[in-house]
Design a protein around this nucleic acid. Structure first.
Lengths: 197, 197
DNA sequence: TGTACATCAGTGAACGCGCGTTCACTGATGTAC
DNA sequence: TGTACATCAGTGAACGCGCGTTCACTGATGTAC
């Protein structure tokens, strides 16, 4: 059993990572200090050597979960060099993303939760939504901020709906339909930009 | 203090109504038997004369909340006689709807929660999503089931995003942008149907 | 219509349980000499 | 390099609290005569 300073940093990291996954899989309220610590092979008492309180951990786990998702989407977007709208949409609305809640987009996973949370949490998620919209606007090649915000909303909504629907075929159909509509929207935007330019 | 049979039915109704509001405002997990009963001026012990368990109540409250939202949207849709796509979109993406979580659409309020809930809950919400899509397809005058499902997804996503965003102006902008895009989609569908017919 | 009584809606004390948090303690780490 | 000691990451018992649920009880309801 290690007690070095380096190992403390690793412990903290393991706790935070586990929490970031857990809140995406089962919601902010699902995290209990005891269970969380047990799932990283530590005891509950040690928790307060890493975080001031459960609520402090939750705030940091939300931030972490949002960054995880953002990092994933950034990788998806950059095929090489420039962002790719079609690739982003296809990856976001893939069956793989739908089925991997634990590592997927935290905005979709926690939108309802955060919509009713305190202003701090909302501001944190807001910042990430804005960044997503910016990246999508760049990928679409349009300065239309509204269109990008709509695309983000539709992506989140479609992923959520596909996760609620129990019948796999119908769930797939939601993803496919949304992909089609959004690619058309992106295409129209690019075409419009091309015409205007 | 009444104890008649009629009053028992009224009590049950008050409990269920309060719970349906509460879960939309603060989530499924926010409901505690004690607090719920106190908020309808009863004591916790009486709860089990009305419901088998907290989880039984939650299931019924979810169903009730979804029906409330559906009833509201049906009223919005029927101006008189036929359903109206533009009116539905405008009402759904209004500031009033965004700001009234307690009485608003339960799909948006609980999408993230239900997406990670047991299959029973998901099936209940799924049925309501399907009904919404059907009604929207009829209003758009298109047999394109996928387009209607996309519209539902986008409505939910945009309402959720507008509820996360803290700055009122930016939140309004999300609603406005989504309204524009969806009305264009509905218009395109109608135009397409008119051309085809 | 008036009386006697069974029913049952609602009360509130009590239960076991898991929660977040605290704290005295243990023993490996890593530093001073 | 070897020894002595302060530090501090992690342990686990203990705390007060609110939870869901049970149950003996109360007293108004509504029925039988």
């Amino acid at each position: 059993m290690g007690h070095s300073q380096a190992e403390k940093a690793q412990s903290r990291e393991r706790i935070l990572k586990e929490a970031a996954g857990q809140i995406r899989e089962a919601g902010l309220e699902s995290v209990s200090v005891g269970t969380l610590m047990r799932s990283v092979n530590l005891t509950h008492g040690g928790f307060y050597g890493h975080f001031a309180s459960r609520s402090d951990l939750l705030a940091q786990a939300l931030e972490r979960a949002l960054c995880d998702g953002e990092a994933a989407s950034r990788l998806a977007t950059d095929t090489w060099g420039t962002p790719d709208f079609a690739a982003s949409v296809r990856r976001y609305l893939s069956r793989k993303h739908r089925d991997s809640r634990r590592s997927g987009c935290a905005i979709a996973a926690l939108a309802s939760d955060v919509a009713r949370a305190d202003e701090d949490s909302r501001r944190v998620m807001e910042a990430h939504i804005d960044r997503c919209a910016d990246r999508l606007a760049a990928a679409m090649g349009t300065p239309d901020e509204g269109k990008a915000l709509f695309a983000v909303s539709a992506l989140i909504g479609a992923l959520l709906v596909s996760r609620v629907i129990t019948d796999p075929k119908r769930s797939d159909a939601v993803l496919t339909a949304a992909r089609q509509q959004l690619l058309a929207l992106g295409g129209a935007a690019s075409a419009g930009a091309a015409q205007a330019g």
